[in-house]
Design a protein around this nucleic acid. Structure first.
Lengths: 218, 218
DNA sequence: TATTGCTATATTGTCGACATAATGATGCTT
DNA sequence: AAGCATCATTATGTCGACAATATAGCAATA
């Protein structure tokens, strides 16, 4: 699935996305230094383009930069993952709360349809659910919040980092069936326009997910 | 009071801060277009510097940019304010929750001292409390969360926007004494290490603040 | 008169070169 | 031999110029 509706138009846009994906997918290792000149030859653009891309990556917290020294890809740590999920719990909880108020009936119906497709896939034993389906589910609810800041923070910022942890610490894996039930209850709360419950269930859902990942790391 | 410990070293840093403050304080009007050449003469730097500053402002959601067209200062709207406070409620609620767990005893003592000074100032009828004191109070709790993402999102992003709304829609004003009581209870919850209550109280506190501002706008 | 296509202009996007600060090596001093 | 100062090198920061794109104005046509 394609992230947000970001259609790169300028060279800086394209380079930003290329570089970001190379980092998130681990082709550029976490913690490594980003040399502007090196990258400019690698991606065949001028240093100015690379600088703009790096600046944007810094805003996403994917790289850290020190003045007159350079930029490094962030290092992954258990502490970092925990902090990330704390923010996710907070923001996505609020997203679910707002979605319960702001989603249209059609959007809710679509969400239910998505859930049903997931159910069928699970029955058939397909378990690529986690990566694509789970993300898709969360996306719709976040969009359903209709809150620009929330949407941007999660899509442009948090989610790429989450993905980076997922890919590089290698966590496809289970929690599929239980996650499905949690999703179902969240949708039900949203359909009932129960904002309070929707937020609570979403927060629990993300907490469980965090705990599951943490368990694997230990 | 000075925002975070940002000490600009490069020219782009300085220009970024200058430009940001000019926008936040309303010296550059909301919704207006930002011409790169114009700004580069105004701030006496090259266009590259201005471009970098604008890029950073875009990351803060203070300006919006369209490719090959240019950047505009965001427009202020009641809807925008509401969305901003929804995010604030979410993030600062989580910050209070984490602060209840992660703040040291010394930090909590300091926070109590700050609260006491505020109390004395209120008694003396000084009411610059709102601007400086309130911000300071919230800052300490956010820092107390010890969560890098949370801190960065609020300090580098949300707070400048909140300030922009405060300044430009002209809301110094009351809610001082009631806010003081709310602050007191939040600190008490943190001191008792009651994370759940701290979060709830902080969320209510921000909701009340939002309601108060909304009432003024109508 | 409204609309469409072209052109001129102004603004943004991109580039290569120069300025400046950090880093590591080299040699000197104690 | 260890530590410090100096210098060369390398990378980042900054700049002005050129290229590409959007916008406004004008003219021509239906």
């Amino acid at each position: 699935m394609l992230l947000a509706n970001e259609q790169p138009v300028t060279a800086a846009d394209k380079t930003f996305i290329l570089l970001r994906d190379d980092i998130v997918e681990g082709r550029i290792v976490a913690g490594s230094k980003l040399s502007e000149t090196e990258l400019s030859t690698k991606y065949a653009v001028s240093r100015a383009i690379i600088r703009e891309a790096i600046n944007r990556l810094e805003a996403c917290h994917i790289v850290e930069r020190k003045a007159n020294v350079g930029a490094r890809v962030v290092a992954l740590s258990q502490q970092g993952l925990i902090e990330l999920y704390q923010v996710r719990e907070s923001l996505e909880g609020m997203a679910a709360r707002l979605a319960a108020v702001n989603m249209t009936h059609e959007e809710i119906d679509d969400l239910m349809g998505l859930l049903k497709r997931h159910f069928d896939e699970i029955k058939d034993g397909q378990s690529y659910y986690q990566e694509a389906g789970d993300v898709d589910f969360h996306y719709r609810i976040i969009l359903g919040s209709k809150n620009k800041h929330l949407i941007s923070m999660l899509f442009d910022g948090i989610y790429h980092l989450v993905r980076m942890y997922r890919v590089q610490l290698g966590m496809a894996g289970p929690r599929v069936t239980t996650a499905y039930d949690e999703h179902k209850h969240i949708v039900k709360a949203i359909a009932n326009r129960d904002a309070e419950l929707a937020e609570m269930l979403m927060r629990r859902h993300i907490m469980y997910s965090k705990n599951s990942i943490e368990a694997k790391l230990s």
